[in-house]
Design a protein around this nucleic acid. Structure first.
Length: 581
DNA sequence: AATCTAATAT
DNA sequence: TATATTAGAT
């Protein structure tokens, strides 16, 4: 029987707002191994997967749950019923798009599949690449239906729906209007469904960005390209353009960081690092920015670092649950703000990211340090002086607030560590050293080492300007434990790195700490710094089971910091912006 | 063909 | 503001 059919409770109808995430796929294959593999891959695409090993069972399911699936993927060779037979039934009874698959690509079989109405024919072994876009068949079908039903002039329909209302009304046409309905455009995720045709724009959430950075790191900074990144990221609806745009911005940011770094390095190079480098925060890259908000009642501080919908649909209702808080702990004011009035003003007070390059050759996963209390909405919540409550929204959609109008929810994957690149190779440099055996040579880290430490789901201000006042580094001087930083620099720089690279704060560095805490290290640095600065006691903080592999002291420190009331954090706020534009 | 960059649009 | 789109160059 239904050996593995899973129905996702509560999802009876397709969520058009998050399309294609949540696409309901029924996989039929008599080979349990393939079932598993496919299920895994499809789930990775954020689809809802139901599997079954028998064609008859599939048919049963399909009949039972009319409208319960969006697409069927079926093997051709099955003992109980020919895949083509199933295909026929599906075509006749529920008119769902069906993708056939088999190990052999014999033309006649493929032909048969297509003739029987298969929308696609995949050859095993099937790879992610091929599954990512299967939603296009669903969309195509929907469009077809819409076209058939509606009384539109068919020729114009596509073109019309590509235009947004304004353009349509004003009669304004885009240059490439003619191209708007070509194949590429149609398979583009931005056409969410046939009813709401506003283009969705990608909001680079922390998670998304982390994936991005991870991909970049995997590829190697000198070899990145939008396409490779896109492939590695594995987000089905993301387009190359999206990535390209983001990459462009990212590079800008890194470049700027580097420049600042260089300037400062030369500026304070001869002096006592501890004293003169106060202003070099950007190179220090404390990148788990915190919200420096002190007074919740002030509007100007209340609305930044919002956790927005991941994809906005046109001008529709941007979800603006605001997160703010202390170190990764988003706090939300239970009201949503439309518009960006304060977003721009409050530069510096936002939650940002810790992304960095430099760990390129390091096992990214090993540098990863999970932070249990930050990772989900269920995380224990810190106490704040003020009475506002932390709010979480995890990327998987769980929220303590009313659900936003969200499109394209992104599965949370916070298992990536990232590194920070201080020295961004210029184009020339990259060309000059094509494929340098040691990537780190490009990544001469001048203390700018940060692990990915930001499990918040905040989506805002990945690229935040580093305002002068937030470049407040003096805490670093007082860092009681420099241990971590040394260690992490070490890790990041790799074996080849010259000690000189650590120069900025070398005076205060002491090496040797535990292993694989690189990511945490810098963070710990700051926390420790903070710890030393402020005499704030630790409140009861229930939950945290010690993070395995992380020395308790660090852990405590983290927690400690984590519990800081917002206003006590001002001192350590620096370089929050991930990208600076 | 893919990518980069800058400029510009939304 | 952040992201998308476009154009022109590589």
């Amino acid at each position: 029987m239904m050996e593995n059919s899973k129905t996702i409770a509560g999802f009876s109808s397709p969520r058009t707002d998050i399309f294609p995430a949540g696409l309901r796929v029924l996989v039929v294959d008599d080979d349990p191994t393939w079932l598993k593999i496919l299920e895994k891959m499809l789930k990775k695409c954020s689809y809802e997967v139901t599997t079954c090993g028998l064609a008859r069972e599939a048919l049963y399911l399909l009949r039972e749950r009319k409208d319960g699936f969006d697409i069927v993927i079926s093997d051709v060779n099955m003992p109980d019923m020919d895949g083509f037979k199933l295909l026929e039934h599906v075509g006749l009874e529920m008119d769902l798009p069906v993708i056939m698959m088999s190990v052999d690509g014999e033309t006649s079989r493929v032909m048969k599949g297509v003739q029987h109405g298969a929308c696609d024919y995949l050859l095993k072994p099937i790879r992610m690449k091929e599954l990512r876009n299967i939603w296009q068949h669903v969309l195509r079908k929907k469009m077809q239906e819409a076209r058939d039903v509606g009384n539109h002039e068919l020729d114009q329909y596509d073109e019309m729906w590509m235009l947004n209302g304004v353009e349509r009304l004003s009669g304004k046409k885009r240059k490439d209007f003619e191209n708007k309905h070509d194949e590429k455009e149609m398979s583009d995720s931005r056409c969410v469904d046939s009813s709401s045709m506003k283009k969705a724009r990608v909001v680079w959430t922390v998670d998304l960005h982390q994936k991005f950075v991870k991909a970049v790191n995997q590829i190697g900074f000198d070899k990145v390209g939008p396409k490779k990144i896109l492939d590695l990221m594995g987000i089905p609806w993301l387009t190359r353009e999206n990535v390209a745009s983001h990459l462009q911005k990212y590079r800008l940011y890194l470049t700027r960081l580097q420049k600042e770094d260089e300037v400062k390095a030369s500026f304070c190079g001869m002096k006592h690092p501890d004293v003169s480098c106060k202003e070099t925060s950007s190179s220090l890259s404390l990148q788990n920015p915190v919200d420096v908000c002190t007074d919740v009642t002030k509007d100007k501080y209340s609305g930044d670092s919002g956790d927005k919908a991941i994809v906005q649909n046109g001008k529709s209702n941007i979800y603006e649950s605001k997160v703010k808080g202390v170190v990764l702990m988003p706090v939300t004011e239970p009201r949503s703000v439309v518009g960006d009035n304060f977003d721009s003003q409050v530069a510096g007070s936002k939650i940002g990211l810790t992304e960095s390059f430099g760990l390129v050759n390091t096992d990214v996963e090993s540098a990863n340090l999970p932070i249990p209390y930050c990772s989900t909405g269920e995380a224990p919540q810190p106490q704040y002086k003020q009475d506002f409550k932390p709010h979480f929204q995890s990327a998987n959609g769980s929220s303590h607030q009313p659900l936003p109008v969200v499109s394209h929810q992104i599965p949370v994957d916070r298992t990536q560590a990232t590194c920070f690149l201080n020295h961004i190779p210029s184009r020339e440099e990259r060309n000059r050293h094509p494929d340098a055996e040691n990537k780190p040579s490009f990544f001469k880290s001048k203390c700018g080492v940060v692990g990915n430490f930001s499990p918040i789901e905040s989506t805002v201000n990945l690229f935040q300007p580093v305002s002068q006042q937030q470049r407040n580094v003096h805490i670093l001087e007082q860092m009681p434990s420099t241990t971590w930083s040394a260690r992490s620099c070490n890790v990041v720089n790799g074996p080849q790195s010259s000690p000189g690279n650590l120069s900025l704060r070398s005076g205060s560095m002491v090496a040797s700490v535990g292993e694989d805490v690189c990511g945490a290290s810098i963070q710990g640095e700051c926390f420790l710094a903070n710890n030393g600065l402020r005499n704030i006691e630790q409140f009861d903080y229930n939950d945290p089971q010690p993070i395995s592999g992380v020395p308790t002291c660090l852990y405590d420190t983290l927690r400690f910091d984590y519990e800081y009331p917002i206003d006590s954090l001002e001192g350590i706020v620096m370089d929050q912006g991930l990208f600076i534009v």
